[in-house]
Computed example of a mutant assay.
Amino acid sequence: MTTTYALLLRGINVSGHRKLPMAELRELLEGLGHRDVRTYLQSGNAVFTTDGPGSESALATAVEQAIEERFGFACDCLVRDHGYLAAVEQACPFPADELEGKQLHAVYYSEQVTADRFAAVDAEALAPEAFALGDRVMYLHTPDGLGRSKLAETVMRPSLNKGVVATARNWNTVRKLVEMTAAG
């Protein structure tokens, strides 16, 4: 069975730290036996096709180990297939077609998170910003963008994300990864 996956790397190529050139990431993925490897932007998005059964977590672990061996730093990774990515896009509770890509984000998690984790967040005080939870994802509506978002700053605190990997993508990237994994 052949499956196309998106690889989401957390915290690379940010402010000159943890540099991982996309050409070298493509080589690394090909060296792990993956095919049709493509990258999107410099912020750690890749798409690849692989054969045989493989869990998303096992694929992510293999990439994390290879990155640490080759580049000398740890990098959290998430791997998601096309079906999951398309379902996240379809389940968005916010009017995605009416918003700019910078106003809507998906925070992907390594496992399901519950509302209890975010019970201390005073959502009303942060309005008009809003969030909603889905299947291993949080949807963030940030009308002024993520960089100025008090909500994003709050929900991305390490104390609220303890024990899980969380990585955010703007809605343009969400859509592009759905498109790229469909083409695989």
Rank of each mutant, 00 (worst) to 15 (best):
residue 110 S to P: 00
residue 85 L to Q: 02
residue 82 H to N: 06
residue 109 Y to D: 05
residue 107 V to Q: 09
residue 112 Q to A: 15
residue 180 M to V: 00
residue 103 Q to A: 07
residue 113 V to E: 05
residue 123 A to Y: 11
residue 90 Q to L: 14
residue 25 L to G: 00
residue 78 L to N: 02
residue 12 I to A: 02
residue 38 R to N: 10
residue 97 D to W: 14
residue 30 E to R: 08
residue 52 G to N: 07
residue 101 G to N: 09
residue 15 S to Q: 14
residue 12 I to W: 01
residue 86 A to Q: 11
residue 176 K to R: 13
residue 78 L to F: 02
residue 24 E to P: 04
residue 90 Q to Y: 14
residue 165 V to S: 05
residue 66 A to I: 06
residue 73 F to L: 09
residue 68 E to L: 13
residue 30 E to C: 10
residue 184 G to C: 04
residue 180 M to K: 02
residue 101 G to S: 11
residue 30 E to D: 11
residue 3 T to P: 07
residue 121 V to K: 01
residue 94 F to D: 05
residue 136 R to Q: 14
residue 135 D to Q: 09
residue 23 A to L: 12
residue 100 E to K: 13
residue 37 V to D: 03
residue 86 A to V: 09
residue 70 R to K: 08
residue 112 Q to M: 15
residue 85 L to W: 04
residue 155 V to F: 08
residue 39 T to F: 08
residue 139 Y to E: 02
residue 38 R to T: 09
residue 176 K to S: 08
residue 73 F to W: 09
residue 71 F to M: 07
residue 44 G to N: 04
residue 131 F to Q: 03
residue 47 V to N: 00
residue 112 Q to P: 12
residue 159 S to M: 13
residue 32 L to M: 07
residue 99 L to P: 01
residue 94 F to H: 06
residue 151 L to C: 05
residue 1 M to V: 12
residue 179 E to F: 11
residue 135 D to F: 09
residue 174 V to E: 06
residue 59 L to V: 07
residue 167 T to S: 03
residue 19 K to T: 13
residue 116 D to R: 11
residue 178 V to Q: 02
residue 131 F to R: 03
residue 83 G to K: 09
residue 128 P to E: 10
residue 126 L to K: 03
residue 38 R to S: 12
residue 25 L to F: 05
residue 113 V to W: 05
residue 55 S to P: 04
residue 146 L to T: 10
residue 123 A to C: 10
residue 145 G to K: 09
residue 115 A to C: 11
residue 80 R to E: 05
residue 91 A to D: 10
residue 2 T to H: 15
residue 177 L to A: 02
residue 108 Y to S: 02
residue 88 V to H: 00
residue 144 D to I: 12
residue 150 K to D: 15
residue 94 F to M: 07
residue 88 V to G: 00
residue 66 A to P: 01
residue 167 T to L: 06
residue 174 V to P: 00
residue 18 R to P: 02
residue 57 S to E: 15
residue 40 Y to S: 03
residue 132 A to M: 10
residue 80 R to I: 02
residue 123 A to V: 10
residue 64 E to N: 06
residue 44 G to L: 08
residue 78 L to E: 01
residue 110 S to T: 03
residue 162 K to H: 14
residue 109 Y to G: 01
residue 28 L to M: 03
residue 54 G to R: 13
residue 79 V to I: 06
residue 19 K to N: 14
residue 121 V to L: 07
residue 124 E to R: 09
residue 137 V to M: 03
residue 26 R to I: 10
residue 168 A to E: 10
residue 105 H to M: 12
residue 41 L to G: 06
residue 59 L to Q: 06
residue 121 V to M: 06
residue 18 R to I: 10
residue 161 N to C: 08
residue 133 L to S: 04
residue 122 D to P: 00
residue 179 E to D: 11
residue 164 V to T: 04
residue 2 T to W: 15
residue 70 R to V: 06
residue 146 L to W: 15
residue 101 G to A: 12
residue 115 A to E: 15
residue 63 V to Y: 04
residue 83 G to T: 11
residue 11 G to I: 09
residue 102 K to I: 15
residue 72 G to E: 11
residue 94 F to G: 00
residue 98 E to G: 06
residue 4 T to K: 00
residue 23 A to C: 11
residue 59 L to T: 01
residue 112 Q to F: 15
residue 181 T to Y: 01
residue 1 M to W: 13
residue 177 L to I: 07
residue 91 A to M: 13
residue 182 A to Q: 12
residue 163 G to H: 02
residue 121 V to R: 01
